[in-house]
């Protein structure tokens, strides 16, 4: 590592990162140019870096490099046509989306992208989440069974299974998409007593779930804040040491 690289890693890099961190934290004082500069810089650097990564990791090895290695005569190779030429045509068609006049030609690769992605996501959700989680919700109420991960057994496991089952059923029952609301009545007025009870209990489960998720997000933010302040303190110590030393 050269001296310049060492200086960049030990001094300039942490100093720039510390300044950018302070510029972002200046939003506590309100919207100001320092925060905007940091935000614009972050967006620009992230976009530029993503573009470079796409070109280096995707376009070059998958589209350009095979053509350069095969040459013009190699373009007639059937394998190259299916693996390089057709994707290249789709890429060109997708680029036509940039022009309003030729945007319709870009609908074909866009439809292909969205269709394949939707099929993959929906298929994975059905086979990987819906069916396994439905089966997991219908657990046995046998008091002698033992939970495989947590080791729960007896009444503890039975209470846990009942809570999970009740929360699942009540939450699903609280979303009444198929019930018709009588004319002139509000949503709460059109419900019966048992429906109100289901809605109230389901609301408790939903509130606890969202509260846990919010608490987790808050904990993560606190960890990040503490890490940034720790980094700033380290940067201050490092720069001070470099100056004094």
């Amino acid at each position: 590592m050269t001296d310049m690289a060492a200086l960049l890693d030990s001094v300039l890099g942490p100093l720039a990162a510390a300044l950018l961190t302070l510029m972002v934290l200046s939003y506590l004082l309100g919207d100001n140019p320092l925060f905007r500069i940091a935000a614009y810089l972050f967006i620009g650097v992230a976009s530029g870096y993503a573009g470079v990564v796409m070109i280096r990791s995707v376009l070059w090895p998958g589209l350009i490099d095979p053509v350069l290695q095969a040459g013009v005569s190699g373009l007639l190779d059937p394998e190259l046509i299916t693996s390089v030429l057709l994707p290249g045509i789709l890429v060109v068609l997708l680029l036509l989306k940039l022009s309003p006049g030729s945007a319709r030609l870009g609908s074909l690769p866009l439809a292909l992208l969205l269709g394949v992605a939707a099929a993959v996501v929906v298929g994975g959700a059905i086979t990987g989440t819906l069916l396994p989680q439905t089966a997991a919700a219908v657990q046995t109420l046998d008091p002698t069974a033992v939970a495989p991960r947590t080791g729960e057994a007896g009444l503890e496991r039975l209470a846990n299974v009942i809570i999970v089952l009740a929360g699942t059923l009540l939450t699903l029952g609280s979303f009444r998409f198929t019930q018709r609301k009588p004319a002139g009545l509000s949503g709460a007025e059109s419900m019966g007593t048992w429906q109100r009870g289901v809605r109230t209990l389901a609301g408790l489960f939903i509130a606890v779930t969202f509260g846990v998720m919010f608490g987790g997000a808050l904990m993560a933010a606190i960890v990040v804040l503490a890490q940034r302040l720790q980094f700033l303190w380290g940067a201050v110590l490092g720069v001070t040491g470099q100056i004094l030393g």
């Binding site: 089966a135 939970a147 987790g216 993560a220």
Partner: peptide
């Protein structure tokens, strides 16, 4: 995972047939 994603992903871990 992060703390906020724990409640969403824990069922995959604590299921009778864990994924």
């Amino acid at each position: 995972m992060t703390t906020g994603a724990d409640p969403v992903l824990r069922p995959y871990y604590e299921a009778q047939n864990p994924q």
